[in-house]
Design a protein around this nucleic acid. Structure first.
Length: 510
RNA sequence: GCGGGGGUAGCUCAAUUGGUAGAGCGUCAGCCUUCCAAGCUGAAUGUUGCCGGUUCGAUCCCGGUCACCCGCUCCA
């Protein structure tokens, strides 16, 4: 029997509500009415996000996985600037195609710069069709002319033609215009601004010479420093450079909580290798990255791993061996999936672009091969903000049988609070024992000591915070030294000596 | 960007069809309490999203705006 899964807006609203109630995530500048596409992380959310971030950094940089040859791969860290020389974004392809008003064709799926389009009509005819062409492209123009002549069923001389630019094209005119690569009329959109980058000005004078952009991805900062890292870090190809940081995109429609926001965090790795070895490393990183999500509790049931079809490959991935997505079934995408991470073979696109635009020598000399070349790049690019959202969705577990009605089943590795330390009652010397355990271990683990209110209330709070363990000191502890540890997921309780709490956590958390 | 839906305490909601708002839960304090939001006593918290208009008076009517949710669009 197939289970039919629908977009679950009720669950999503419950998750957003819990995030607000417990201090995971708030709307940014909420007391001023918020700001579309921006979110703030509260105490628990910050801890959760830092834990996901640290897990990635640990597994990629501090303790990278073994490569295909069984030896640990070589990866170093980087933290580049959010604002770079604006020419960076020309080289990367972010400015140009996306800084000017663009016209899309719904039929041919082609996109044109609006100021590069010309329009051809019959002089004196205000109701007949117009035919668009790409200015400066003779074949495109003659094609438009032929289409026009076929439409009016007459041979036209130059004097019969009416040329105009996009500025003369009203909505009504566009509706009867045939695109440069289209057959039907009315498939061109109106010119639309596609500047997805946030613009700012460097220095006090706000003239266009001082214009700069907030980075729309962290990746470029890595390519910019490729030579610096090679020259200073004794790395040899193949190796990787990792970076975690904020990126900014002025999205048309921010939607779905922190899934598509205008300010977000990325965890990106650019792995440089010889072009011949690229397929091998691509394979390796697809495998490595898809398995990683399980180590922070995002399970296979809700993960989808898929390769891009060739027609959806980005400009930088055209010549590579493909792009591979790790997708997660969020409540708002179900039964579909939303992207968590993409592993792309970018060939040597980025380095060659920067070498060309900057006039810099970015080639690497490979001693072993006795060969000078631009390395190819395998890029596993993961969303930290989206990762946090996936972790939240995955952890959210309804359980009518427990007082809170819901608990967050975080993997201990990313849980904001690792354990609660409670005296069963706030008297008889129990708080002193619990407090002493807390003071002893708090430097090593994020713990919460709470002597107030009923024990059930404290357990319920920890359930919503997703704390995996709670240690409770009771009267028996005074005699035997044993206290009780409660497991969040099973509600099971077991006895542990108070001197063994540190060891217990060490076993469970590593 | 277009269309639709609701914005009332931290959360879930009620009320007044024009006369400045309540409950439950949560939170906090004290008491009590031998393991799952228990009990008792008390307390704090709202410019009814924001701005303007009509009115003697607006949370309610009107206009605008902001954020959120849904459907299109968009998402290199």
């Amino acid at each position: 029997m197939l289970e039919i899964i629908m977009p679950d807006t009720a669950t999503m609203e419950a998750i957003v509500s819990l995030c607000k109630r417990r201090g995971f995530i708030f709307p940014a500048s909420e007391i001023y009415g918020g700001l579309n596409g921006f979110w703030d992380y509260g105490p628990l959310g910050t801890a959760l996000k830092n834990n996901v971030r640290d897990a990635w950094w640990h597994d990629m940089v501090d303790c990278p996985p073994d490569g295909p040859d069984g030896q640990p791969v070589s990866i170093v860290g980087l933290d580049s600037s959010i604002i770079q020389n604006p020419r960076v974004w020309e080289a990367s392809g972010h400015v140009g195609g996306f800084n000017d008003p663009m016209v899309d064709c719904r039929e041919s799926k082609a996109r044109y710069r609006a100021d590069h389009l010309g329009f051809l009509g019959r002089k004196g005819d205000t109701t007949g069709q117009f035919f668009a062409f790409v200015s400066g492209d003779d074949s495109s123009m003659s094609k438009a002319r032929k289409k026009l002549e076929k439409y009016v069923k007459a041979k036209l001389s130059d004097d019969d033609l009416d040329f105009c630019g996009i500025e003369s094209m009203t909505t009504a005119r566009l509706a009867i215009t045939v695109g440069p690569d289209a057959k039907e009329a009315g498939t061109l959109t109106e010119p639309r601004q596609f500047n997805l980058m946030f613009k700012t000005y460097v220095g006090a004078l706000q003239d266009e010479d001082a214009a700069a952009y907030l980075r729309p991805e962290t990746a470029q900062g890595i390519f910019l420093n490729f030579k610096n890292v090679c020259d200073t870090s004794r790395v040899r190809v193949p190796f990787g450079i990792a970076q975690i940081g904020k990126a900014f995109r002025n999205e048309v429609t921010p939607r779905n909580f922190i899934f598509r926001s205008r300010e977000f965090e990325q965890m990106e790795l650019e792995f440089f290798c010889h072009g011949d070895d690229a397929p091998k490393w691509y394979e390796f990183w697809c495998e490595t990255r898809k398995n990683w999500w399980g180590t922070i509790g995002v399970k296979n049931d809700n993960l989808l791993l898929r390769s891009h079809d060739s027609d959806e490959l980005a400009h930088y991935a055209k010549d590579g061996c493909g792009t591979f997505d790790v997708e997660y079934r969020f409540p708002f995408t179900a039964p579909g999936y939303g992207e968590l991470e993409g592993v792309a073979h970018r060939s040597n696109y980025d380095l060659s672009q920067h070498a060309q635009h900057a006039g810099a020598k970015l080639e690497y000399f490979d001693q072993e091969r006795n060969e000078r070349y631009l390395p190819h790049v395998i890029e596993p690019s993961a969303g930290l903000s989206r990762g946090v959202l996936a972790v939240l969705c995955e952890a959210y577990t309804e359980d009518p049988d427990r007082p809170s009605g819901v608990y967050m089943k975080f993997h201990p590795r990313v849980a904001p609070i690792k354990a609660g330390i409670f005296p069963l009652v706030n008297k008889d010397g129990l708080p002193e024992i619990a407090s002493a355990i807390h003071r002893e271990l708090r430097g090593k683990y994020r713990l919460e000591y709470d002597p107030k209110q009923s024990i059930g209330k404290r357990y319920a709070r920890m359930d919503e915070a997703g704390t995996p363990f709670c240690f409770t000191v009771d009267a028996g502890t005074l005699e035997t030294g044993n206290l009780t540890v409660r497991h969040r997921d099973t509600l099971a309780q077991e006895s542990v000596n108070k001197d063994q709490v540190g060891n217990f956590l060490e076993d469970q958390l590593g």
